[in-house]
Every structure is written in structure tokens, then in C-alpha cells.
Amino acid sequence: MTVATAPESFDPMITPVEHVVTDVIPEIPDVVTLRMVPTTGDVAPFLPAQVSMVGAFGIGEAAISISSSPSERAYHEYTIRHAGAITSALTHLRRGDRLWTRGPFGRPWDLHPGGDLVIAAGGIGVAPLRSAILHTVEHRDLFGAVVLVVGARTSHDLLYRREYEAWRDAGIDVIATIDHDEAGWSGAVGFVPTVIGDLEFGADTRALICGPDIMMRRTADALVAAGVDPDRIQVTLERNMQCGTGRCGHCQLGGMLVCRDGPVADYPSVARALSIEEW
């Protein structure tokens, strides 16, 4: 995108960076992954869980986490569910269409090497975790045991299911669970916190959780009950981010401006906020 009046110092959080869609990958119903590259300049470096404001012409922007690998410098991928007007427009894009991003921004997952890792995802919550999963796939030797628990309503709602095999081959214990048993289903049945409750964890386990608020709370509680240090549990928060720079106020969660201080948070710092209705 050409900037008509070039600012003295270009800030990609303030001024849009034009991207072109290079591939549209259908995922589960209502969900697609857009692969995109900037029309000028390099693909921006980012860390797992970081987010961009992704813009649709004439409509607006939605905050979406980058779901590709942080080591992938040829493109970014964003997995988007058709929920509102903006995501409806984004999921409608075709190869060659132009859009823009502002970002990437936000506090990433703490993926310091060492210790066991448990990654828990509810529904489409696996999207903001995919870059962390791909990072562990690529750097498997840096971690102890790595367990991924993915929960979905039905087997048809399991996002990235075709990638499980590659993740398992890399040494990740992938446990997929669905809410109710289905004909032909041989995996786990039940909610993520229940599945977590049946597992055992070492003292040096670090946990990453993404899903609806209630799922994150129950999963964190199950992990604490299973002996995981609460300070080593991280969650990622989804609130109404608009500006991405901490100025517009919409994404407040108590004392946090989620776009500025999150989206990743240490569970103890947000446990109370997540437990108060409409906080």
C-alpha cells in the first residue's frame, strides 16, 4: 500500500500495511485460514499469540492472532471464524484480494525452554495456540513432555485436525476430545478440564490455555488441582480490541487493557476478573 504522505517514522500499529491474500484454506464450517503477504516490504516478525488488527475495506478491523509458525518468514496465516460483519467480509476474501493489517502486537506466550508443556484449547481457541504448537514442533528438543488437549463440540469442529499426525510425529501427545460420543469416534469424550483432570503433570509443567472464559477458568482450576503451579499457567484473553494501542478503552478487563497488557496473562493475575460476571 502506498502511503500518500509518508510519516516521518512509520508505525505499523498506526498506519495500515497492505497485504494480498495468497491462499484461502477452508477449515471447519464457517472457518477459513487466510495466507497473506505484504505487498511491499518483508513479512513482519512476531511471537506466538501476538495479534494484528486485520482490516476489511469499508467495514472495519478485527483483532486476529497469527496462526502460522513464527519461523515462517514467507507469509502470515490468520484463521478466522465468520462471526460478525468484519469477519464475514474477511472470510469472503479470495486469492489476490487486498486487505490490511496493523500489528503484530501484544504479550506473547512464555515459551522459555525447559520443563513439560501442556497446551489446552477449547473450540476455535486452538487458532491462537497454533503458532506456539508449531514452535514446539520445530523445537521439540527444548521441552520435556508436550501434551496438547483440544476440545470441540463435535468431531467436525476440530480445527487443524489434518495436522494432528504431523504434530504427533514430532513428539506431541495430541488428545482430541468432543463433548458427546459419535459413531466412529475413537478419541476422548468430555470437556477439556475433565480430560486434564485425568492426566498427571510434573512439577516443572507450564500450561497455555485458550478458549471461552469459562473453559479457561475450569481448565486452570483442574491444572492447579493436578499440581501445576498457578504461576506457570497462562491464558489468552479475548476482548473487544479496536485501536490495538491501548487508547480506545474497549478491551478493558479490570486493570488490564488487553491489547496493551495482553492478550496473554498469567492466570493468577486475571482469575478474579474472569470469575466476576460482566466485569
Partner: peptide, 11 residues
């Protein structure tokens, strides 16, 4: 984003 987005898909 506006209220009421989450309605039946628009034809």
C-alpha cells in the same frame, strides 16, 4: 462491530 451481527447468514 455492531450488535446484531450474529444473525442468520445474509442472503
Amino acid at each position: 462491530m455492531r450488535i446484531g451481527d450474529r444473525r442468520p447468514a445474509i442472503d
